[in-house]
Structures are given as C-alpha cells and as structure tokens.
Amino acid sequence: MEKGEDKAHPYPNLTVELAGLKLQNPVMPASGTFGFGEEYSRYVDLNALGALVTKSITLEPRLGNLPPRVVETPAGLLNSIGLQNPGLEVFIREKMPFLRRFKPPVIVNIAGSTVEEYAELARRLEKVPGVAALEVNISCPNVKEGGMAFGSDPQQAARVIKAVRQATSLPVIAKLTPNVTDIVAVAQAVEEAGADAVSLINTLTGMAVDWEKRRPVLGNIVGGLSGPAIKPVALYAVWRVARAVRVPVIGMGGIMSARDALEFLLVGARAVAVGTANLVSPRSMLEIIHGLKEYLREHNIDDINEIIGGLEVPFPL
C-alpha cells in the first residue's frame, strides 16, 4: 500500500458522485470505443475504472454501415460504424453476465429510431441485474433515423429523455451532439425533461475525400470526427453547458492524457470519458487515472472534487 493510503479513506480522494452513482474515480470509457468490456479485459483491469460504458444497444441487431468505416485524419479519427450491435436480447443474455462481474457501475448506452424504442429499451433494461444507469444516445451522426435527429433539436431531445425517464427509475444520462447551433439549449431541455446527467460531446460530423479516386473515403460518405483534433470544441461545449445546468456533466472529446482530463474537470466536468485514446492504446484509461492521482499528490490536493469547475477566467465571457 502506498504512503498515506488506506482502503476506507483513499488519499488523494478520486471518488466523484454522478447521477446517484458513486464512482471510485472520474474516468470511464466513451461508448463505442470499448466494445462490451470483454475485448479489453486482457489489457485493462476493468475493476480499476470509474464506470463501464457499453457500446450503443438497439432493440434489434444492427449490421452497421458499409466499409471502410474508419479513416485517420490529422490528429483525428473519422468513423461511420453505424451502431453495429447484437441487439438488446443478445446483449442481456451474452454481454451483461460478463460486465456485472466487475465492481464499477455498468452504464448501458441505448439508441433508438423512435421515441417508443428508447422507452422500450429503458423498460427492459430496468429489470436487468447489474445495469447501474442508462446513457441515452441522441447524438449518433451515423444512422439515418434517430440518433442525431433527436439530439439536434431541444424539443425532440426532451421528448426522448422524458419517455426514458418515465420508463425507468435508473439514472438517465443524455449524450449530446455538438452538431447544433446551441448545445446549451439542448442540455437545458434534457435537464428539464428529467436527465440526471449529460455527457458531451459525441463526434463532430465530417467527411474525408480521396481526391485521386474522386470519391468519399468512408463507405457511408460521412462520419463522426473524434480524437485530439476535437478537444478545443469539446472543452468549449463542456464549459458552457456545465455553467448552464445543475446536473453533472461527463466531459469527453479528444482526451488522451491526464492533462487533457484535468482540462475537462477544470471547465466543469464531474467525470470524463476516454474514447479514441482506447483505440490507440488499450491502457490509456489506466494511465490517465494514474496521472490524475500523481497530479493531486504533487500539488497536495486532497480531493479531486476541488479541481472540478476550478477554471479561473480573467473576465466574464
């Protein structure tokens, strides 16, 4: 055991509370970049994470989009997976038994093409042992129906969250898209509709062009951009939303290091999600958790909650 550490009162304290969940640290995977945990369990002690977040689940299985589905761009990754997943039933039967073996809360990400589908998913997951919270994906840019279509309009977003809220007593996290004029309006609408937390940002819509072939690179033509390239956009969105809503914010978008995670905590995120970095290095989240701990120790900060929202601005914007 390291100096100054005991099990009942770990030092420094990395625990954060979020939507009624107690997280042992504020670091979790971003949905879609961590599969269903199993794929990474050889490289990462899943028990070390703040929470486990699944890939999006839909009622019926989804095949996903035509290849190529990913392409690297400068300091970024453009993807158009298209919510490939085995569907709710297979998820409950084959993926949950593995996930519920671990200590961190399991946050199941759900996506629907109608409001009723979201509500149905929420109803059926309510009774599944081991499901700690729902993250509602109203921000996927890679599907024709649902996804971003709901998340880009405050009223539509609120309709989905309200339906989910009424269908479940589990904590509800709304995952928001940055592909809107005013993300604050969407965040306030989902808060009003009963969301217990918001997570942002999902990917930014983009495309890559093969100028020699005169064709789009992605099979789906367009995709969602993630990675270090989008971090400034994400920080700005989190900063604005965190000051405009009372519910906690899970910040994400290009977090590669503990330094990046600290930046998100400073602008007001209660927790952070790591996405693209998992695809680059499976141990990224563990390194980020370690880095946060080191930072707090070096600066004699007892509690990570002291950092959250601690950004000092020279003048109001």
Binding site: T33, E39, K55, I81
Partner: peptide, 27 residues
C-alpha cells in the same frame, strides 16, 4: 485488409461483409 482502429475487435471499424452459414450477410 481494411482500415483499422483498435485492432482488438472492440470498435467494429474494420468490419467487412461476409456470408453466414445460412447464406445471409453479416459483418
């Protein structure tokens, strides 16, 4: 060969269409 991200089967980025035993296509 396909454009690849995680390499571990998690992200589904390098999925290609293949026939299942029943003749239907999956990725």
């Amino acid at each position: 060969e396909e454009h690849m991200a995680c390499g571990l089967g998690a992200c589904r980025g390098c999925a290609v269409p293949v026939y299942r035993e029943d003749g239907n296509v999956t990725y």
